[in-house]
């Protein structure tokens, strides 16, 4: 069992008797420090999607499905193609990658985990941390070096996130793929 707070895009959870692949998670804070997790889920039996909300501490059954370590190979619209160590290729629908798609870039070397349900590749889980190049961010406005002042940045692959004010265009940065938060300069 995992808490909603621990669930990541790519996980498959059992709800109401059906397996659901988690396509997107968004954690916010309610009153008194309580976390609220909004998820986009896809029902693997009915091929339908829904948005749902959980308390951060809600427990849910994380289904252990077959998984394989793979690396990203190429994109063949609308499929992302991943390859295992034996050069077998697996197609994953772009929809099923959810937020993870933002971190998929050509030439990436990080090991991803492809999840299978009834023999079909259904989702991809990224490593907890990835390193990506900042392709654009405004120059530091305040000269802040504390890391507390944040500004927007675009990274390779096109995603945007908040980074510390001292980060420059061209810097490599570490990103937490669960929270989409900047961790540090790599």
């Amino acid at each position: 069992m995992k808490t909603a707070h621990e669930i990541r895009p790519g996980n498959v959870i059992m709800l109401d008797g059906s397996p659901w692949v988690v396509q997107k998670t968004e954690t916010t804070r309610s009153g008194r420090n309580a976390a609220i997790v909004k998820m986009k889920l896809k029902n693997l039996l009915q091929d339908s999607s829904t948005e749902t909300t959980f308390k951060g501490e809600d427990k849910m059954e994380d289904i252990i499905l077959d998984r394989l370590d793979c690396t990203y190979s190429y994109f063949a619209d609308p499929m992302y193609v991943f390859m295992d160590a034996e050069y077998n290729q697996y197609d994953v629908e772009a929809d099923n990658l959810g937020d993870a798609a933002a971190y998929i870039v050509d030439g990436m070397e990080e090991q991803c985990q492809v999840t299978f349900y009834e023999g079909k590749a259904i989702s991809v889980e990224l490593p907890t941390t990835v390193v990506r190049e900042v392709t654009y961010t405004e120059p530091s406005a305040r000269g802040d070096t504390s890391g507390k002042v944040m500004k927007p940045a675009t990274i390779a692959g096109g995603a945007t996130l908040s980074v510390a004010d001292f980060v420059k265009t061209g810097d490599m940065i570490e990103i937490d793929t669960r929270t989409h938060e900047f961790k540090k300069r790599a």
């Binding site: 709800l15 109401d16 968004e26 916010t28 309610s30 009153g31 008194r32 309580a34 609220i36 909004k38 889920l41 829904t50 948005e51 749902t52 909300t53 959980f54 308390k55 809600d58």
Partner: peptide, 18 residues
């Protein structure tokens, strides 16, 4: 839930929790 004026509230209000 608690009252908040943050933008995300609109996107979460009324959503089911399976």
């Amino acid at each position: 839930e608690y009252l908040s004026a943050e933008d995300w509230v609109e996107g979460c209000h009324g959503l089911p929790s399976l």
